[in-house]
Amino acid sequence: MDLSSLIAISRRYGRDKDYVLLGGGNTSVKDKDIMYVKASGHALSDIDESGFVRMSLPRLARIWDKTYPADKDEREDAVLADMMACRCEGETARPSVEALLHSLIPFTYIVHLHPALVNGVTCAQAGKASAEALFPQALWIPLVNPGYILAQVVREEMAVYKKVTGTVPQVVLLQNHGIFVGGRSPEQVEAAYDAVMSKLARHITRLPHLDARKPEKAKVAKVLEGLSAFYGKDTPFAVLLNKELETKISDKDSFYPLSSAFTPDHIVYSGFKPLWIGNEIFKARVDTAAAVKASVEAFEQEHGVRPKVIVVQGVAVFAISDKAMDLFTDTIKVAAYTESFGGPRFMDDDQIEFIRTWEVEKYRVSVTT
C-alpha cells in the first residue's frame, strides 16, 4: 500500500506545536484486513514508511474474545504479547499502545493528537458538559487507564452510541488525554480538526500570557548552583519566566493550576508533578544552593524519582531539559484554557501512578530520549 497520504498528514500535524509536542500522537490507515499504525518511539514530525507497523485487523479483533488477568501488570503483559502477535509477518517494530483503539474506529484514516486547546476541555472540571454542548456528535470517554482498558471502554461506548444514533462518531474526546479523529480521507480528518479547533478558539475566554520576563540573575545563579550539585554540571537546565508564571508562582495557592499532571504525556516528559521550593531559601544566613539541593533530594527520597521540573517561588521555573520545559509550557497553556470550562482537573492519583509504573511508557521514554 502507498503510505504517502498517511505520512503527509502525520508530518503535517507532527510539525505543528499547536497539535503535537515531541513524540506525542499517533496515526493509522486501514486497507482491507491490514492496518498500518505508528510504531512506538517514532515522532510524527519526520516519520516515513519505517515508522509504521503492519497489523492484522482480524487478529486484533480476536483479542476481544479473550479473558485477561485481573491483575493490571499481568493483564498488560498479556495484552502486549497478543498485540505483538497481531503484527504481520516480517514486522519487528513495536506498535503504538493505542493500536487496538485505532483498529476499533471504523474509518480509513485515524489521527490521534493532544492539542493544548482540546485538552483545555478534556482536562477541565466542566469538560464533559462543555464538550457535549460544543460537539454534540462527538463521543466523550471518561478518565480510565490507557491501553487495553481505554480501548475496552471506547469499544463499549461506541456500541451504545451506534445503537442510539445509528452512526459511529468521527470525533472521540478522551478525558485528560486528547482526541481521536477519523475520516475516509486525510481531507475529512483535516476538516474535522479544523472545525473542532476553530469552535474551541471562539469559546476560549482567556489566552495564556506567554510574554517572556527576565528572572533575577543572582537568584537564578544560586538555584542553578544547587541543581547542578545534585543533577550534575552537564545537565542542560532550561529556565522559564513569563507573564503567566509571574502570577502563578507568587505563592503555592496561585500555583495550584500547574501543580500536577493533566495527561500521560505530561507525566512522561515533565514528570507527574513539579517540585515547589518556597522563597525562604533566599533568607539571610540560608545557603540557597544547599537548600535547593536538599529539596531535590527530599523529593527523590519521597517519590522514588527525581523531579523534572522545579519551581522556585517568585523566581522562575527550572527544567532538566528543553523537552521537559516544552511539556511544562503545554501545562501552562492547558491550565489557562481550562478556565473557560470550569477550571483545571488533573488526572486522578491512581491513573498517575499507573502511568508512572507502566512498562509501555517506560519503553516509550527509552526509545525517544
Rank of each mutant, 00 (worst) to 15 (best):
P236T: 10
P274Y: 03
F354N: 11
A191C: 03
P95N: 13
D253N: 13
I355L: 03
H112D: 00
D46Q: 05
D322V: 01
R202F: 05
I310K: 02
E91H: 08
K128N: 12
A238Y: 13
P186I: 02
E49L: 01
A129C: 03
E132P: 12
L174A: 04
L117S: 07
H42N: 10
V196P: 03
V296E: 10
R59L: 03
E187T: 01
Y256A: 14
V164G: 02
Q170I: 08
V317R: 09
K333T: 04
R155Y: 00
A126S: 15
Q351F: 13
P236A: 06
V121T: 07
A129L: 04
V168F: 10
K162A: 14
H42D: 09
A81L: 15
V292G: 05
Y161Q: 07
I179D: 00
K199D: 14
V317D: 10
V365F: 05
I47F: 01
S250I: 07
L150K: 01
V154R: 02
L22A: 15
L22D: 04
R59S: 04
G41H: 06
V37I: 11
A284T: 03
K163R: 15
E244H: 15
D16I: 00
M197T: 07
A218I: 08
L227H: 06
T329I: 14
A324V: 04
L101N: 08
A116V: 04
F262H: 08
D322Y: 04
